[in-house]
Design a protein around this nucleic acid. Sequence first.
DNA 1: CGTAAGGTTGACATTCCTCAATCCAGGTGG
DNA 2: CCACCTGGATTGAGGAATGTCAACCTTACG
Lengths: 256, 256
Amino acid sequence: MPNTSASRLDATIPRSAVAKSAILRSVRPEFRSAPLRSADASAEAGLRHIGSLIARPEGRAIIEQGDPATYVFRVIDGLLRAVLLLPDGRRYVVRFMWPGDFFGFEFGRRHIHTVEAIVGVKLMRYERARLDELMATHPQAGYQLLGQVNHELSSAQDHLLMLGRKTALERLTSFLLEMATHRTDPAQIMGKEARLPMSRADIADYLGLTMETVSRLMTRLRRRRVIALPTTDIVVLLNRAALVRLADCKVKALRP
Amino acid sequence: MPNTSASRLDATIPRSAVAKSAILRSVRPEFRSAPLRSADASAEAGLRHIGSLIARPEGRAIIEQGDPATYVFRVIDGLLRAVLLLPDGRRYVVRFMWPGDFFGFEFGRRHIHTVEAIVGVKLMRYERARLDELMATHPQAGYQLLGQVNHELSSAQDHLLMLGRKTALERLTSFLLEMATHRTDPAQIMGKEARLPMSRADIADYLGLTMETVSRLMTRLRRRRVIALPTTDIVVLLNRAALVRLADCKVKALRP
DNA sequence: CGTAAGGTTGACATTCCTCAATCCAGGTGG
DNA sequence: CCACCTGGATTGAGGAATGTCAACCTTACG
């Protein structure tokens, strides 16, 4: 789903910093804000100086809820999840972080999510204090960040609509189409298949469903030849039109 | 819906620009970012010059989805809702805007929500272009705005957790406690009662429920003497402790 | 009074969740 | 190489929470 309006040069990291749901965009394409251009050259250079590259293995927590917000991170490689927990253990996955995404920027002094590596990751880590300095010296950088946060906000609001008003099937199909926008195998034509490196539980917690419901719906889609599942973590979109139709709110389709 | 109880506020806008849910805060109090200070004096003065005061009657749309994002607004008096619509008519209320709240700031060129006045409102309207100028000349202003947007983001993410993982009763009790943090009658001790100037349908669309469910739960809470409902739009919190307990995820309490 | 609009209540349907059994792929040790 | 184990994923049966549809009530207002 190419952003015709926005395929502007996106400097170092190929993936848009803020991954947008193709589906949510398709609901009202003309209303989406343009993806961020990366910060201007000098700010970008500045960033490079104040950051350091770190690697973390699968399963490791990068940030814990309540940690002092000392660092801001940018994903170079891998995949992470941001998690909120309720006292009784219910879990909600706020977002997944893909290469190019920033995370850990908190206006307050403490992190509000736990962030865990879903696979082994490489990250750039920036000191928050230095970032503030950078913003003071390069006002552009602050503006870029504002755009980033604003985009994340509208993304979260789309997700609110989804959780508040969409059925399980609509949520899952939206999710699959969103995942298909991420680069998978470079040899593959993007959008033809989706990689799901996260567990079914992660998907469920992201969509406000249970693992079992996700699993059942996957099976249903498979039986109807809308998708194929060569492995549990690869989804081939056999019938994209059907997926789009289902995601775009035709509620009653595709009965068991 | 009677306009009579609509908050009558003084010009200085005492309410925090970003109203936070007491409950959501109570889930993890130490993680919340501090409420925003209002912009520094010069930026504030700058704001005053580039804005104009407007009034709109109950029911009027201030912004329509897809409108060019020419203006940014700040609520002086009254109450509004930001709405997202699905093609088939399902509706979701993203947020309510109370006195002091900003809205309509879009990083993109078009508004992504429809915003409607729930009661008659007074607004300050700022030209987006002028606001950008202001941010250039007063970098502080940009920083303030960043904080504002960031706060809205974490608010939206809390709401995601709620829609994704909380029961209907938990959502409603959270909502009531949130509403009780808003100034109502100045003579009243704040927090003892909540005004609900919005309709049951608005509440339902905000909480991802149906009108009927909201209504039934209200009745249940009333029967259990947790709240009283002298009128449909005034909720007296008879037993705040119980409300907090219910909101904080004791799922099985208070059966019909 | 009478009407209209929002709110409440009830009966019933449906979706999704819960709990539990089973499957399957990948790793491990014999 | 194969049996075994393990953890995630799938499937099934049954139930609870919430939605749907429709009737009824309440209030505001002409």
